[in-house]
């Protein structure tokens, strides 16, 4: 069997200890070891962004990241954005603005949009376009996605 190692990290605010094969990717660990299927596989080579997660405050493609590299770090997946109070402002904006169709790319798209809007509270539509270029969507043509990002910027500014 392939070599496994134990890692400890914070996942959506809770400590996790898990043994993983050292060549396993974070995406596979999330989906198959930890049962968090919100994060999606769509290309496996960092081209589509469906597997985007937040690690130590920055987004990256979990399909490219070795699971062992999660050790000691802080991960947030799509399941971790929602609070007991409900959807976070980015999620709500995506729903309200019709940005969700088949929705398969949405966990990655929303994580990335949430990161962009947190990172730059003044984010413009043009900057959002650039920031989302690593997230492919086949349904929406991105127009409603960008509408939603603009609304999320506004909602966060108003503290909603």
């Amino acid at each position: 069997m392939s070599l496994e190692t134990e890692i400890n990290f914070t996942l959506n605010g809770r400590p996790v200890t898990v043994r993983v094969p050292v060549a396993m990717k974070t995406l596979t660990m999330l989906r198959e070891v930890l049962g968090l299927t919100g994060t999606k596989y769509a290309c496996g080579e960092g081209e589509c962004g469906a597997c985007t997660v937040k690690v130590d405050g920055r987004t990256l493609n979990s399909c490219l990241m070795h699971a062992v590299d999660c050790d000691g770090r802080e991960l947030v997946t799509i399941e971790g954005l929602k609070s007991p109070a409900g959807m976070n402002p980015t999620q709500k904006a995506f729903v309200d603005h019709g940005a969700v169709q088949c929705g398969f790319c949405m966990p990655g798209m929303i994580i990335q949009a949430d990161y962009l809007t947190d990172d730059d509270p003044q984010l413009t539509r043009e900057q959002a376009q650039r920031g989302l270029e690593g997230n492919l969507c086949r349904c929406t043509g991105y127009t409603k996605v960008l509408d939603a990002v603009e609304a999320a910027v506004e909602a966060k500014r108003c503290g909603r």
């Binding site: 968090l36 919100g38 997946t77 399941e79 959807m87 019709g98 929705g103 949405m106």
Partner: peptide
Amino acid sequence: DAPDKAIGK
């Protein structure tokens, strides 16, 4: 179905 899709459920 959008809310469940947006929260990864």
